[in-house]
Design a protein around this nucleic acid. Structure first.
Lengths: 179, 179
DNA sequence: AATTACATGTAAGCGGTTACATGATTGT
DNA sequence: ACAATCATGTAACCGCTTACATGTAATT
């Protein structure tokens, strides 16, 4: 369902687009919160067309199909946002490694934590770069809260990444003291 | 792979157990970082037996099979912890809803954020209750860092949940000002 | 005797990944 | 001519969920 909603969201915010365009949008804007490749997007768009949530508005060169969101699609997206509780089953690889970490001896655990910290630092730098760029981008159609599309998620992402980084640093310090 | 590692971790920490026991352990201890039902666990244990990572140590009443981790299993777990980068594809439902939120008008967006906040508050209370209980639990076998098994993940989870809660509160305040 | 908890498995189906396959257009 | 990019799709496979299916032991 989430893939569907992400696609409807992109079509609402940026207007009609092809499967190819949408796949690019996933790589660029949505990548940090949701991922999908073209092999997943094309069949999904076909299903969504059958369900009346989108329509093939036009067909361009090279068999390019331009999809547009329908009123039903818009309603579906709004309904999902308003009433769907994000009960995504907890499945967090970083947290799982953290969970199992005490099974290693202190030296090894420290090495793992250092790796985790480096990884988190890279991710934070990426998000903060995106944050800087964002202020130059145009406000897309469809944004009614006055907040730029995607900015709330970026803020959340940066905060969470900073939290993970702080945890890694504190844990390295705590285990380091014992080792 | 992660399910495999979670199972090996539980067998290392708590000693030999049946598929049934492991399913219970998932519900209790690992639930916040990884989820798995018995229908996933039983076939996985069979595959792990075939791969020599665990052995059926004993068979009890009601066809109960007790699995024990083998040296190969232990090596596999350690290798994974030490060298596997947790590149779990970003797929976060809360963040996706945050991403799409500006498509709603301010009143609706506020309602969604309130729901998100309530959900996060419940989760935080749960984790903090677990934190309180933890101090009474025994230190299991296999913990070599001196940190109790699962405590690092719990700390991380509490921090992240607090961060999400703060984000929800701040965003409610920010949008509320505009509405 | 009936219910609950223990205990194990299988099957259908969905969401997602990787790889395969094809062809048109544009730029060098 | 060749390469890169545009553009769409399919197939095999894996991980996971939900539901089906079966039977045993302990409790009330």
């Amino acid at each position: 369902m989430s893939l569907r909603m992400a696609l409807l969201g992109l079509l609402t915010a940026y207007g009609p687009a092809s499967g190819y365009d949408l796949a690019k949008s996933f790589e660029r804007s949505v990548a940090h919160v949701w991922q999908a490749g073209h092999s997943q997007i094309y069949p999904e768009l076909a299903k969504m067309t059958a369900d009346g949530l989108v329509t093939v508005e036009a067909e361009g060169a090279r068999g390019r199909k331009i999809y547009a969101i329908t009123p039903e699609g818009g309603a579906e997206l709004r309904a999902w946002l308003i009433s769907h509780d994000p009960t995504g089953p907890a499945r967090n690889e970083v947290a799982l490694q953290a969970f199992l970490l005490p099974l290693l001896d202190p030296g090894e655990a420290l090495a793992v934590l250092e790796r985790l910290r480096a990884y988190t630092e890279r991710k934070l730098a990426e998000l903060e770069a995106l944050h800087a760029v964002k202020h130059a981008s145009p406000v897309p159609e469809g944004a009614t809260t006055g907040v730029r599309f995607g900015n709330l998620a970026l803020d959340l992402g940066i905060r969470q990444t900073r939290t993970t980084l702080a945890w890694a640093n504190d844990t390295i310090a705590a285990i380091g003291r014992r080792a």
